[in-house]
Design a protein around this nucleic acid. Structure first.
Lengths: 337, 337
DNA sequence: AATTAGCACTTAAGACCACGGAGTGCCAGG
DNA sequence: CCTGGCACTCCGTGGTCTTAAGTGCTAATT
């Protein structure tokens, strides 16, 4: 049904609509793109495309705009990811370099992505579950307080204060620290519960109460934070873009961490881009937005996802290029750390 | 010049304008407030208030709206901070309780404040410079890498990886850890540079290279983060409020950390509220916004500031009450930790 | 001297209407 | 299968009119 020319027409419609934000008519199309046919012919193709649901008219006597389905086809078959310019690549490198710790890497990444795409950027912190234990530290803070610090190989640090103990001796802490590190060093975080299960029994009886407290807090810190951390930037870019949903609703949705995480969706390969267009997205207030996301991590291991949110009417090739490039760079930075 | 009744009229204008968002005229004023005089009299008072610059007319035949100067007078002399309802107090307590670490306290606080005031909330992380050293930990990560973790009495944790060392021995690390903690425990952070100045000389010669590296990173982590961390929430509340400046500009300004910090301004007493109205604020894009801020901390020691940003046309008594209450609560939570 | 009633005047905002432009659908001819 | 022509639809713009709200001023009242 859809011959090459009809696809070319669809592509042209998407491109023009994205750049002008106005319904595009047959005449304008014939002029701006060299399709080699007259407006009338284009009109015929248009009715075909409309019948198939790829484009729609806001009202009679207006031009056409792409539907979600139209964008979908465009993304899947009519466009190629646009690589970044050398200048942009250099910008990424200098901007992400010089970050001193994980917090700063994430903070810079999200700002960078927002700036590059001129849209809202989201970056998820590297997941705990995919990392392994680098070191566990116990710090006596007083006779009844101990601080536990868990350091992962992805640079993430979790700390907890354990309070209300009775009479903690230096020696007990020292013993426990050794045992813990011996049992856990290098283990994946999801292996931790098993690895520490019978650890108390290997200790002297007088050390066991402390061990129990520490272990319970340690395990808790692994699951409790299952709600992952996410940061966002570039909300200013939302203003001024026409949304069918009210801007307020969109902003509200984006302030819910839970929503953000669901938005990034199931993790894919670091080099794989996921595009979710308009109503393909479950959340009501985000029906008129699209999400371009990618996983990032070190090697072939995906640690977390990042992406951008913008109007369905967005520059998909450019956005996809930026997301992919940033995902790769941040991966390499993490690896180099 | 301004007798009591004129002040009452100004107060009434502010209150009505804040609640209706429309210029308020003499008739409506006479009806809604029992001022005991006729609209004509109110009109006479209005011209006086206008001559003094407290109110203005958007155009000839419209009602009056308060000017920045009018709001200022209202805040300084015509209003009292509105205490929270018991229900709201309970909400604060349950919402802020159950936070496990500093990150979460701050994150919850900012959300709470945004929800309570229905505006944009800003919370600054407790400043490093006002806290003291709780503990310094050194963790060997490998033959050439050591992680330094600095724990402050405000629960803040700074960590840095030190790389490229040669052949670190367990013993050296152990020595240095002891010396560091002995020299620094309890010291204010601004005393740290002095306290460690001659520490290397007290060590064995073979430990000194490591000490030098660690110290330089330690000192760096104190100053470098002078750019304080700030979090924000509630931007959705900006949408739908009429701004003279474009929403985009406001959002853009609020995404700049530097701007946010300047916005919170000089720290005041924890119990002291600062209100900056409209053009009193230096930043161009924020001419039509007001900032209500307060310091928070433990005891009488201010660790950082928090506040909310909203349109100049805001409910000052209510907002001030919420900011003050939240500042106090978060202070008490920090103290209890 | 302060307050009030009355009245003419100003202005923004809404309703209504006419009209031009952009775009379509369809038909008949190449 | 493509194209030119043509009638039709609809939106957006700009003009005019009316209405409602509010003011400022003056003269009367307390």
């Amino acid at each position: 049904m859809l011959n090459d020319r009809k696809l070319a027409v669809l592509r042209a419609i998407v491109e023009d609509f994205v750049s002008t934000d106005e319904p595009v008519g047959s005449r304008a199309l014939a002029e701006r793109h060299s399709l080699g046919v007259s407006p009338a012919t284009i009109r015929n193709d248009m009715v075909a495309l409309e019948e198939e649901g790829y484009i729609a008219q806001p009202h009679t006597s207006a031009g056409r705009i792409p539907t979600d389905k139209g964008y979908r086809l465009f993304v899947d078959r009519l466009s190629t990811v646009k690589p970044l310019s050398p200048a942009e690549r250099r910008a990424i490198e200098t901007f992400l370099g010089g970050a001193v710790d994980l917090d700063e890497i994430v903070a810079r990444t999200v700002r960078l992505l927002a700036q590059l795409t001129r849209q809202v950027a989201i970056v998820q912190y590297p997941s705990l579950t995919r990392s392994s234990v680098q070191h566990v530290e116990l710090v006596p803070l007083g006779p009844q307080r101990v601080m536990m610090v868990l350091i992962t190989n992805t640079g993430r640090v979790e700390q907890r204060v354990i309070d209300g103990l009775d009479r903690v001796s230096e020696g007990s802490v020292e013993h426990l620290r050794r045992s813990l590190n011996q049992a856990l060093a290098g283990k994946w975080l999801n292996e931790v519960p098993d690895a520490v299960a019978d650890l108390p029994e290997t200790l002297e009886p007088e050390d066991r109460p402390l061990a129990a407290s520490v272990l319970s807090v340690l395990l808790e810190s692994l699951v409790e934070r299952h709600e992952e951390k996410v940061v966002m930037s570039g909300t200013a870019n939302l203003a001024g873009m026409g949304f069918s949903a009210s801007l307020r609703d969109v902003l509200e949705a984006l302030e819910e961490n839970v929503v953000l995480i669901r938005l990034l969706g199931e993790a894919g390969d670091p080099s794989m881009l996921t595009v979710r267009i308009g109503a393909e997205n479950s959340h009501e207030s985000l029906r008129s937005t699209s999400i371009v996301s990618a996983g990032y991590g070190v090697g072939d291991q995906t640690l977390a996802k990042l992406g951008v949110v913008g109007p369905t009417r967005m520059d998909y090739p450019g956005t996809m290029g930026a997301v992919r490039a940033v995902a790769r760079y941040v991966g390499s930075i993490l690896a180099g750390q």
